[in-house]
Design a protein around this nucleic acid. Structure first.
Lengths: 157, 157
DNA sequence: TGATCTCCGATCAATATGGTCGCACTAAAG
DNA sequence: CTTTAGTGCGACCATATTGATCGGAGATCA
């Protein structure tokens, strides 16, 4: 449950790769093309291409056309949050349908719905979690994040 | 993205309803049958029935057969967590496929996968969030949960 | 014994997803 | 200025998941 799509997975891998090349020690500033990423991680080329196009359209990466072209982070890795990446691919984060319902699109259960408010709270917590972690945090062999077990609860009884 | 299924939605509504009847002021201890819940919340009867059967099989509620039969919480509302409910319906919580992969079921990207560890951390945080909120917390008009904004991050830079 | 209920399994339709194909456009290199 | 390697883009299909439905078997109580 709560699985994220493969496209989103691919997006995360690709961005991590681009970032590590761009800011790495070997060939800093080099652009990365789709083929390179696809081969490195065994991702279907065309699908990855589409993912990267979306990321580009949403301003997370910049594309450079022509030969020797490729992709580049649009801003620093620390300014790209996981939430931005996921939402860019999968649309707005919404645990439940009724969280962003426009008028005329009411759910049948709405009038007596008793779980809406709590679910929205949960959704909010998850969003904050994802929005407080950046691509920069994901970089490097040693993960930079650590979970503060007791405080992550966000729930008071 | 990260949407939970309608079955899970129904499960939450049903459990909330059962709990509120069982521990409410009007008819405490009364059993609740499927039809009552289905009509109250406009849920397809047969689908709800299946959801309740699963919850029953997983030990969250008790079923009583025959006329005047119905469902009852198997234990106190405070001892039933949201995580238990969701996992009961949708299977184990797994943001990404590779989080519970058995041997022989490797993902293609595994060898160079750079996002596995961070994703597992995120998954863990979400699980704790869901596991620290109980059915009891969802009860009543006033939601009992409050988000501790700064501490929910679980991320250190 | 009949009515009312849960239980269980098979099945179907709709939707979402993963993956593919083809072509137009752009920019660097000769 | 032509070639070529690359992105941009939209249509398309196959499959998996999900939501929903149906039919009947087994309890329980009046």
């Amino acid at each position: 449950m709560l699985k994220i799509s493969k496209k989103a997975d691919y997006a995360l891998m690709a961005l991590q790769h681009i970032a590590s090349v761009q800011f790495g020690d070997v060939t800093p500033g080099r652009v990365v093309n789709t083929k390179e990423i696809a081969e490195e991680y065994n991702i279907p080329l065309e699908l990855l291409a589409k993912v990267l196009q979306v990321l580009s359209k949403n301003g997370l990466i910049e594309s450079h056309n022509g030969p020797k072209g490729g992709y580049l982070l649009a801003r620093s890795a620390r300014q790209i949050t996981i939430a931005q990446i996921l939402e860019s691919i999968e649309g707005p984060l919404a645990i439940t349908d009724c969280s962003h319902e426009k008028d005329g699109d009411y759910c049948m259960q709405r009038e007596h719905c008793n779980i809406r408010t709590p679910l929205l709270k949960i959704q909010d917590s998850i969003y904050q979690l994802l929005n407080n972690m950046t691509l920069g945090d994901m970089m490097g062999g040693t993960p930079l994040i650590t979970i503060q077990s007791p405080s992550v609860q966000g729930v008071e009884r």
